[in-house]
Simulated assay, not measured.
Amino acid sequence: MTDSCLATKPTRNITQQRQQIRCQMRAKRQQLSAEQQQQAAENICRQALALIAQRNAKTVALYLAFNGEISTALLIEKLWQAGKTVCLPRLHPFTAGHLLFFRYDRHSLLQPNQFAIPEPELDLTRLVTKNELEIIFTPLVAFDRQGNRLGMGGGFYDRTLQHLQRRNTITVGLAHQCQQVEQLPIEHWDVPLNQILVG
């Protein structure tokens, strides 16, 4: 944890405020026990399956947990068993700061990206267009009651979600209860989520 994470002095700089929240929330996530993480994953799985059934969604985007995020492994397994199409994000190879989504199954090959996060290989035969995505489940570092999401700071999901605002795709954050704050400091590029499931 950097010194900026330990700062207690109030600041008017939104960038500093956001970074301080990131540090605090990531530290809280890391303090969760394996049992708490497992319980959260099970709770999220139940809620997500109910939402998918309610919307009769067949193609959903998920993520692979990293650095204390809620695990999606159980949810992915249940979706495979139900015959749903599961997609994972990959950093766009040509358009910096954007995401592409690829079908993910038991035989998919994964490779670490520049952030050491596993992502699907670049196989265009498995590319899923944004029009096909019915629900995008996103990770997050912090959230508030208004549905605002604070990510890791790269802006990848915000850029991706901006292009979905006029489509029927819904965006759903997955979070631990400890990641909620009263109100996030918002930047003009932030895209609020349609819903947040709390484990």
Rank of each mutant, 00 (worst) to 15 (best):
M1W: 10
M1D: 11
D3G: 05
L6V: 02
K9E: 10
P10I: 00
T11F: 01
N13G: 05
N13T: 08
T15D: 11
Q16A: 08
R18V: 13
Q24G: 09
M25V: 06
K28E: 15
Q38R: 10
Q38T: 09
N43G: 13
N43H: 15
Q47Y: 06
Q47H: 13
A50C: 05
I52W: 07
V60A: 08
V60Y: 11
A61S: 14
A61N: 06
Y63D: 03
Y63H: 03
G68Q: 11
E69Y: 03
I70D: 12
L74N: 08
I76A: 15
I76V: 11
E77L: 07
W80R: 03
A82C: 05
G83R: 04
V86Q: 08
A96S: 07
A96H: 07
F101T: 03
F101K: 05
R103F: 02
S108V: 01
S108Q: 02
I117C: 11
E121M: 11
L122V: 10
L122C: 09
D123P: 00
D123E: 01
L124Q: 11
T125W: 06
T129G: 09
T129D: 13
K130R: 07
E132N: 12
L133V: 05
I136K: 01
F137H: 03
F137D: 03
P139C: 06
L140G: 04
L140V: 09
V141A: 07
R145K: 14
R145C: 14
Q146K: 04
G147W: 02
N148P: 02
R149W: 02
L150C: 03
G154M: 01
G155P: 01
F156W: 07
T160Q: 05
I170F: 00
V172E: 06
V172P: 07
Q179W: 00
L184Y: 07
E187P: 01
H188W: 14
D190N: 00
P192W: 03
Q195M: 13
V198F: 14
